[in-house]
Amino acid sequence: MSLGSTIEREPQPGPSIKWTAGAIAALLLWGVIYSQLVPFSEWLVALVPVDRHSHLGEALNFFAYDTPKVLMLLTLVVFAMGVVRSFFSAEKTRALLAGRREGAGNVLAAGLGIFTPFCSCSAVPMFIGFVSAGVPLGVTFSFLISAPMVNEVALGLLFGLVGWKVALTYLAFGLFVAIAAGWVIGRLHLESWLEEWVRNIRASTAELPQESLTAVDRIKAGIEAVHDIVGKVWPWIIAGIAAGAFIHGYVPSDLLASIMGRGAWWSVPAAVLIGIPMYSNAAGIIPVVQALLAKGAALGTVLAFMMSVIALSLPEMIILRKVLSLKLIAVFVCVVAAGILAVGFLFNALFR
């Protein structure tokens, strides 16, 4: 008997433990990097010989911060949805939220948006994850509308500026727009207007043998989802954020205030049209909203402008173009804009 045969070998970690440990380490590293994005963006912009508070400095800082932030959010969410998709087939997901339960799904998705204070471009990764996981299209739109538009930042702003009654009214009508617009889009059954690669991902989820997958298989499914989705979308995200950075740094508030005065019936649709090409989150639009109200702009007009900026931004449309056809984007914009117009006119009538 050889000496080697008498020595008990220590058990080696299995592949499952190694992959799980690697995934946890990667998530921890993600958290560390994400927590340093603000100082990193400030440091990066400081290397450029530009005044930090100039139009160009604001635009550069915006781009330096939002680009890694949105890409990291997209990667994390798509990975998580890839793992979750390995547990639940598309059929089970649709059975839970579709049909007679679709209305409840819209309500739940809109309610979830209240607690996720993302700007529109940051909400897009969640939207893409929901769509690729087979969640009904209308439900995903309810989240996409609610997440940037109805959150604690926006509600806190309104509470501080105009009181709790207006804040609660905004909450109610913001949720109404998100739920109703998502429900209408869902009732139109426009899934065929998704881009082909997204439809293929949705279809492929039904073919996964969920019960036979190991932990390693599920982690690999998440990595594969990141490769397939992030690999296709990232150029559009960078282009969208670049457009948003330019608008964020250079659009003047005085010009906006000059056409949002009280009494003009066309001020609400004009505010919506002006807001659509812009880009900001609820926190970023606070100085503009305060300036507009201080200069005498009507409350409903300002709120319609705010809602259109954070729910129908041009950069958001650019990013969504990789996922949605132009026809579906047009339907989304029209349905949501109609709801925002209704809110704007109502506020102007109730709060003079």
Rank of each mutant, 00 (worst) to 15 (best):
A264S: 14
Q12P: 03
A25K: 00
V84F: 12
S35V: 04
G339C: 10
R101W: 15
S204M: 07
I179W: 12
L76I: 05
A154I: 03
A349Y: 14
G186L: 00
G263H: 04
G182H: 10
V78S: 10
A271M: 14
I223N: 09
D51S: 01
A167Q: 14
R199P: 13
L292G: 03
F176D: 09
S258G: 08
V150C: 11
A270Y: 02
A297R: 04
C334D: 06
I7W: 11
Y170R: 15
T116P: 13
S35D: 06
A257C: 13
E42A: 13
G129E: 08
V45M: 02
P148F: 12
A294E: 13
S54A: 08
P68V: 04
S16T: 02
L73N: 06
A297E: 05
I179M: 11
A283N: 05
M260I: 02
T6H: 14
M72Q: 01
L108Q: 11
V83S: 11
G163N: 12
W164H: 12
L350C: 09
I238G: 03
L273E: 12
T67D: 03
A110R: 14
H55M: 14
P117G: 06
P235T: 07
S212F: 04
E196T: 15
K327C: 12
E316S: 05
S5V: 13
L350N: 11
I241K: 06
L157M: 14
C121M: 06
L97E: 02
Q210V: 05
F141L: 03
G57N: 05
D51N: 00
